[in-house]
Design a binder for these strands. Structure first.
Lengths: 347, 347
DNA sequence: ATGAAAGCGCTAACAA
DNA sequence: TTGTTAGCGCTTTCAT
């Protein structure tokens, strides 16, 4: 492959001049044209690896996500778009919700000299992230927090999101409200659970321990736990499910069991997915601003890699939104179920 | 950050020796231990950018996909897993189903000196891919083909997949069968349409032109086109929808219109999604082997970057599978609708 | 078994 | 405005 030397030779100039043309520095118009012609003729493309070694900047941001599911990929899509517009590339890595793998991926990204790191931590272990910071690599936590670490973060107000969801059920008159939690050692799981509890506190309602189940965010656990709940001698009348994968599993179980929603069981879920709208009935959900999470995280890491360390550590708490659809209606007037849908179709 | 020089100094050896330890070459046990101790003490990690510049290999594979939706991400997940096990990293880029962007992404990946390229082409334009090949970068096409180009590819047998889907409807007795096609200039779109047509040919059935609609793979086009079809004076009794996003849009329209499935309209869709199983009724689909596509593509590109050019150009045609669920039942016995589900739940 | 030294392709002082 | 040159951190002959 042609190098800058070949171009220099062909254009009859030094490599420095070619470099200047490449980087848009001042070069005499005529020289510039000769260089450009040589580049064109040779089909020359700069070697970004060499450039990175020299400049000590790769223009790459690493993004470690726990899975390639729709939630994080919608975030990643927004991140990539913003970052590309700034001239950065994104490497998205899958930690598989596994700390060991997360550590490996972070280490690999550090060795690849990424300029910055976006991480959705799988646990509260922070050693590998601290190390990255120590090496001067800015880190921004996305969606989840690692406690006791000074770090930028872009999060969602999970407590109040869950609160709204459960409060919605309570104000409609439900009392036996179950919950399918995610992993409590992950902040999103813990916070959503806290939101659930807080409603009972605020409304001075008793909590039925047997209606509280803790899964691991997987659809499998949603499937199992909803079955456990519904097999109870006195099953819940409503349930709050803490993330989209568990909701998926729960809905499958529900359709297998022939449980009618919302007649037998009202549902409010955290996270929205396109298909929830075409479920029968469409699901009431707490929608997270995925695109905004991505854009905010991208802008923040860009700010840091650009050397702006003001307001460190910066924390964004984006607000989720309750969207009431057919899966939750007042226990009194179930006939109206199909009319409760209030979401605007946004294809 | 510590470099190999620092390690060498600390261990009292040359950088060459440190490099040998790093790369597992023969070094006296005692020396090795001293080097390892120095590495540990300094928290040294090799700079992969420098290594890449020297070895002319980045151990990175680029993967350009048209979107970050569940289909391609499931493929990407499998690709990453295999590639990581070979010591390679993956950069997934979004072309947004847009040729200009695809060209930019390919160019960027080439400049970043990726060792190999996986591409889901957005069109039959091949110039940028030929250029990459010319520079010695192996290219493997995934899911879609570019005609008139000598290139490795991992594809699905779309013609027979679509054929099975439509034949299933025909053998059940349906005759007025509509189709919502994807982009015909993309091979998957064209091949699935061909499969549809071939059934009518083979069964010597007349084709109703007004039941053939061509969209662009987006859920929006599915939404619009199913409405067009159902607004016909003589609407179809069954419809074949050529990909998952259009199916999503179509199902939303169907639920809005209050059309009953399969009573008013039987549906067979290309692509499976987890949520199709919890739709009412669950959807009959042609399932693509996403994981196998990813693994096959990963293994093939690995073979090429490893210098094995045997059997070039190699083409895999993986077989999709028809899974009959509740959205398609013989028009005669609709009462049985909920019993036809034959898929095994695989959570 | 180990070290010296060249060089991968580029950028950035510094000189001219 | 342009050229000369050093050097980013690593690997890899070639010597020793």
């Amino acid at each position: 492959m042609a190098t800058i030397k070949d171009v220099a030779a062909k254009a009859g100039v030094s490599t420095a001049t070619v470099s200047r043309v490449l980087n848009g520095e001042r070069v005499k118009q005529e020289t510039k044209e000769r260089v450009l012609a040589a580049i064109e003729a040779l089909g020359y493309r700069p070697n970004l690896v060499a450039r990175s070694l020299k400049t000590q900047k790769t223009q790459i941001i690493g993004f470690v996500v726990p899975d390639f599911g729709s939630f994080f990929m919608r975030v990643a899509e927004a991140v990539e778009e913003i970052l590309n517009s700034y001239g950065y590339s994104l490497i998205v890595c899958n930690s598989n919700e596994d700390l060991t793998r997360e550590i490996e991926q972070v280490q690999m990204l550090v060795e690849r000299q990424v300029d910055g790191l976006l991480v959705v931590p799988t646990s509260s272990s922070s050693k590998h992230l601290l190390e990255a910071q120590k090496k001067g690599i800015p880190v921004v936590l996305v969606d989840r927090l690692v406690k006791g670490m000074q770090v930028d973060s872009v999060l969602v107000d999970n407590v109040n999101g869950a609160y709204q969801a459960v409060e919605h059920l309570v104000t409609m008159g439900y009392r036996r409200i179950g919950v399918i939690n995610g992993r409590l050692e992950v902040t999103t799981g813990e916070e959503r659970y806290r939101g659930y509890l807080r409603v009972f506190e605020d409304y001075n309602l008793p909590i039925a321990e047997e209606l509280i189940r803790t899964g691991d965010f997987s659809s499998q656990s949603g499937y199992i736990l909803i079955k456990e709940l519904m097999a109870l001698p006195h099953p819940p009348q409503a349930v709050f499910i803490a993330n989209c994968y568990m909701t998926m599993g729960a809905m499958l179980a529900i359709s297998e069991l022939g449980i009618r929603v919302p007649e037998d069981l009202a549902i409010v879920a955290f996270d929205d997915m396109e298909l929830y709208r075409i479920a029968t009935p469409p699901l009431t959900v707490v929608v997270q601003p995925m695109e905004e999470i991505g854009k905010t995280a991208a802008r923040l890491i860009y700010k840091r890699v650009s050397g702006d360390n003001s307001d460190f550590p910066q924390m964004y708490r984006l607000k989720p939104e309750l969207v009431v659809r057919g899966s939750s209606v007042p226990p009194g007037r179930l006939e109206a179920s199909s009319e409760v849908t209030v979401n605007k179709v946004a294809l």
